[in-house]
Amino acid sequence: MDLAQISQEIANKITEDLNYSEDNKEIVAYAIETGLLNILGMTLIIFLGLLLNAPGPTILAALFGGTLRRLSGGAHFDTPLKCLIFGAIGYSAVGLLAKNLALMGFTSFTFTTIVLFVSLLLVLGLAPVDSQAKPIHSRSLRKKLKISSVAFVVATFIAINVVNDSFFITSATLGLFFQSITLLPIFNRRRWIQL
């Protein structure tokens, strides 16, 4: 039984006495599936971060990258579970790299500025990237997502220049950079990644 079926079963149990329409039951099932995926994703990210002895940087990278992803879109796999696993492994690797760079003192203003500038250029040129499952048809929504993506990168730049913590600086910078790379066309052809 996959996650969608489990979510549907839970939704059926929750709504059986409420006389919900099929549409409303589907909305409840979707909310449950999204919630379960988020919990599973964060659990996996924390577990891998602990396994790599870099839980803080991993969580920070995932929070910054994940927030940008919600606004900018990016590469997609053919199932949410594959996306979740790839993201957890990717952000864990980014967290480990961020930890090691911070320990080596590699948090110069020049480095973070260059990396965030590249991220900003990618977001300006490519965001938002939609998927087959969630196409963006509205020009207004597309414009709002682009503006929000750019604003988030700029806000992150300001935050890393205010906070004086090397783990925070490297984690936030590399988390955003990792997510901005997923906007590249090589990861977003109209035949979404299938494994």
Rank of each mutant, 00 (worst) to 15 (best):
P55L: 01
N24M: 10
L120A: 13
G49I: 04
R70N: 15
T67V: 00
L51R: 02
E16T: 14
T110C: 11
I193P: 01
G49P: 02
N53V: 13
L97R: 02
I89K: 01
F106C: 10
L50P: 03
H137D: 00
R70H: 11
T112E: 07
N24K: 14
L145I: 05
G73K: 03
S72R: 04
K99Q: 13
L121H: 10
S171R: 05
L18E: 05
T67A: 05
F47I: 14
S140P: 02
T15R: 08
L37S: 09
P57C: 13
M42F: 15
V94K: 10
F167R: 11
V28A: 00
S72L: 06
V153K: 03
W192E: 13
A29I: 12
R70C: 09
K25D: 08
R191C: 07
L122W: 02
S7R: 07
R139F: 08
I181N: 12
L122S: 01
Q5K: 12
A75S: 07
F109N: 15
G175K: 01
F64A: 13
P55T: 01
K82V: 03
L195V: 07
L183C: 04
A62L: 01
M42C: 09
A172R: 09
A31V: 11
E16H: 14
L84V: 12
F152Y: 10
P135Y: 03
N100V: 09
R191W: 09
F106S: 14
S149V: 07
I89M: 11
G175N: 05
L84W: 07
E33N: 14
S92P: 06
M42G: 14
V118W: 04
N164D: 14
S171T: 00
H76W: 01
D2Q: 12
G73R: 06
S21I: 07
I85P: 03
H137N: 05
F152K: 04
L68I: 04
S180T: 11
A29R: 11
F152N: 02
K144F: 10
E33D: 07
R70I: 08
G87N: 07
G41H: 14
G105W: 01
D78P: 00
R190Q: 15
L51Q: 05
I39P: 04
A29V: 12
S7P: 08
R191S: 11
V129F: 11
L116S: 08
F152R: 05
L116N: 09
A61S: 14
V162Y: 13
G105I: 01
K146V: 00
L101I: 13
T67Q: 06
M1Y: 06
A151M: 11
P128N: 08
S131G: 06
I89E: 08
H137K: 07
N188Q: 08
C83Q: 04
K146Q: 14
L141F: 10
K13S: 10
I158P: 06
L37R: 13
V118L: 09
V154R: 04
